[in-house]
Amino acid sequence: MDWPDRFGTRFSVFVDTEEEFDWSQPLARENRATQSMDALPDMHALFAAHDVPATYMIDDPIVRCPRSVEILKRVMEDGGSAIGSQLHPWVNPPFDEVVCPRNSFLGNLSRDLQAAKIAALTDAIEAAFGRRPVMMRTGRYGLGADTLELLAAAGYRVDTSMRSGYSYASEHGPDYRAIGNHAFRTGHGDLIEIPLTTVYTGALKRGGIALHGALGRVPRGRGVASRLGLLSRVALTPEDMPVELALEAIRVAAGEGERLLMFSYHSPSAAPGYTPYVRDAADLAAFRSWWERAFALLAKLGIAPASHDQILEALAGAPDRP
């Protein structure tokens, strides 16, 4: 599908708004702490200073934490930010599956259990915020054969679970290496997929996913290629993505005619000590600077932010791609 001409070239920020856990340890149902949410207003203020709304994709521990709900209600007073859903199966009722790496991908669960978890999260968000969410991201990008159909049946209009150019097959998850950055109709009702943006930069960027895959079969091949400026796979996130690479990716994406650049980060990164990406005050300063520099370049290129509701409005008028 094509974005309407009036939409122009835009960018949007989707925040995986979630509980804290040690990323190096096995997943556990007990990991439901949300203390890092106290730092979210300060991070949101940085976005608001640049007139950038965010879509907060919240999961079960967040929506069932009254303090977190109140924090989110306050940040949504900017008039553009909104709430979506993010489903971490291991902390999302009903708890009928074994907690293990394979079952951390929603799409690996039975159809009935997926439907029940989607319903539990969606209903809880509607009860907390008075508005039924219509945008979803499955935690760990975990779509399966039945998931999109179930999301459409639950009333969702947008899924953002696909991460262009990435594969989680080695962890029993999905493979999105063949997925591009363009939004497309899923074939399930009105549900549209908007993949997270991945950009290839460097002198050999035209090699794209094929060359990146080949380099992965060479010891340290991808790292060497990136350091030499030959090829880098760049996701639009400050988490483990150097700012200079990200800025070049923005330029490349704009030059290649991408119409919607999808940025993201995990909410616990708004405070030091909760994710591997922001360990201390220096990391947090660098994290905030990353966003400042990205917003400055986007403004220079004339790429305006798009809110949750502006995306929905544009999709309603989007023609199918021939």
Score class of each variant (00 low, 15 high):
I83A: 10
I83S: 09
G84K: 11
Q86M: 07
L87F: 02
H88E: 03
P89I: 11
W90D: 04
N92S: 15
P93Q: 11
P93N: 09
P94L: 14
F95E: 15
E97L: 08
V99K: 09
C100Y: 01
P101I: 03
R102W: 00
S104F: 00
S104N: 08
S104T: 03
N108D: 05
L109D: 14
L109Q: 14
S110P: 00
R111Y: 02
R111M: 03
R111L: 05
D112R: 14
L113M: 14
Q114I: 10
Q114V: 04
Q114T: 08
A115L: 10
A120C: 14
A120D: 15
L121V: 08
T122V: 02
T122M: 06
D123Q: 15
E126N: 11
F129M: 15
G130S: 10
M135S: 15
M136N: 05
M136W: 01
R137T: 04
R137L: 12
G139R: 00
Y141N: 14
G142H: 08
G142C: 08
L143M: 05
D146F: 07
D146Y: 05
D146A: 13
T147R: 04
E149W: 00
E149C: 03
L151F: 12
A152D: 10
G155K: 05
Y156K: 01
R157C: 05
R157Q: 10
S161Q: 07
S164D: 08
G165W: 13
G165V: 06
Y166L: 04
Y166C: 01
Y168E: 08
Y168V: 00
S170H: 14
E171T: 07
G173V: 00
G173C: 02
D175S: 09
R177M: 11
A178H: 10
I179C: 07
